[in-house]
């Protein structure tokens, strides 16, 4: 278990957060987001609309798990308390996860998944593009590797956005509804706090306001190609930076963490 209580500011009221503390948090954000997306995409296995697409969807999952392992391992190294990727993945509670609110949204139907992935892929694409220049070598290397994967993911989800938007009346309506329903979780992608402040100063992290501009361009362009409407920016959900999530995350974790929790003394 993490010793730091999972409260706002990490319960460190008055204490100044060190760069290392901030970097650990940042790694958990990136790692958790990939982990949860990986877990969601794995749920598609044997449920795809065609065999080819089934394989494509689980390929995305494997990429995400790979990214998660790198970032969670790095968090453990930075922390220096001997924690492994698995300790982070399987032995933290709901309020200690920092994945984006969008990443945990349930798969729903194929269109819901494509919409969620598309909005998220566009974010990660621009984020990792920028983070390739991070002053932290591991983050930079991780981003250089991940950008290749995410470029492909964005291409996959964008093409499906266009097919579903331009396909049948039914598919057009469905994918428009998916985008509308997910829109309120997109604000959380760009939320920043003390962690970002510290790391931006150090040249390790990037200002998410800049990412937002690029994200807007990509999203607008693909929505246009897909003949879909961009929803109004109404009230946005927030909370991932404080580990405040939707109910669905608890269920995902309960399932994912079952074995290591049930047999704490066992190795696998």
């Amino acid at each position: 278990m993490l010793e730091t209580p999972p409260l706002a500011n990490g319960g460190r009221e008055g204490l100044k957060m060190t760069t290392k503390d901030a970097l650990i948090k940042y790694c958990l954000r990136l790692g958790d987001t990939s982990l949860i997306l990986g877990q969601r995409m794995a749920e598609w296995c044997s449920n795809g609309p065609t065999l080819e697409e089934d394989i494509a969807l689980t390929n995305l999952s494997l990429d995400f798990f790979g990214q998660a392992r790198t970032m969670l391992s790095y968090a453990g190294e930075l922390e220096g308390k001997g924690k492994s990727e698995d300790d982070f993945a399987f032995k933290r509670n709901e309020r200690e996860f920092y994945n984006t609110l969008l990443s945990e949204r349930p798969n729903g139907h194929f269109g819901d998944t494509i919409a969620r992935n598309f909005l998220h892929d566009a974010f990660l694409y621009h984020l990792y593009s920028a983070l390739r220049n991070s002053k932290d070598e591991i983050i930079a290397a991780h981003s250089a590797k991940s950008i290749k994967e995410v470029t492909y993911h964005l291409r996959h989800s964008s093409e499906w956005m266009v097919r579903l938007g331009g396909g049948t009346e039914e598919s057009h309506q469905k994918i428009q509804d998916s985008i509308n329903d997910l829109w309120m979780f997109t604000g959380d992608l760009f939320a920043m706090n003390e962690v970002d402040e510290i790391l931006i100063k150090e040249g390790i992290a990037v200002n998410l306001k800049d990412i937002k501009k690029n994200w807007d361009n990509t999203v607008n362009e693909v929505l246009h190609r897909a003949t879909l409407q961009r929803p109004e920016d109404a009230y946005m959900q927030s909370g991932s930076l404080e580990g405040r999530h939707a109910e669905c995350l608890g269920h995902l974790l309960a399932e994912m963490q079952f074995l290591p929790r049930a047999y704490p003394e066992a190795t696998w």
Partner: peptide, 17 residues
């Protein structure tokens, strides 16, 4: 071989398969 409805899908499916 594989199944696909358009060339981009064919290319992506080929890559994954």
């Amino acid at each position: 071989s594989l199944h696909a409805t358009d060339k981009e899908m064919a290319l992506q499916n080929a890559r994954d398969l």
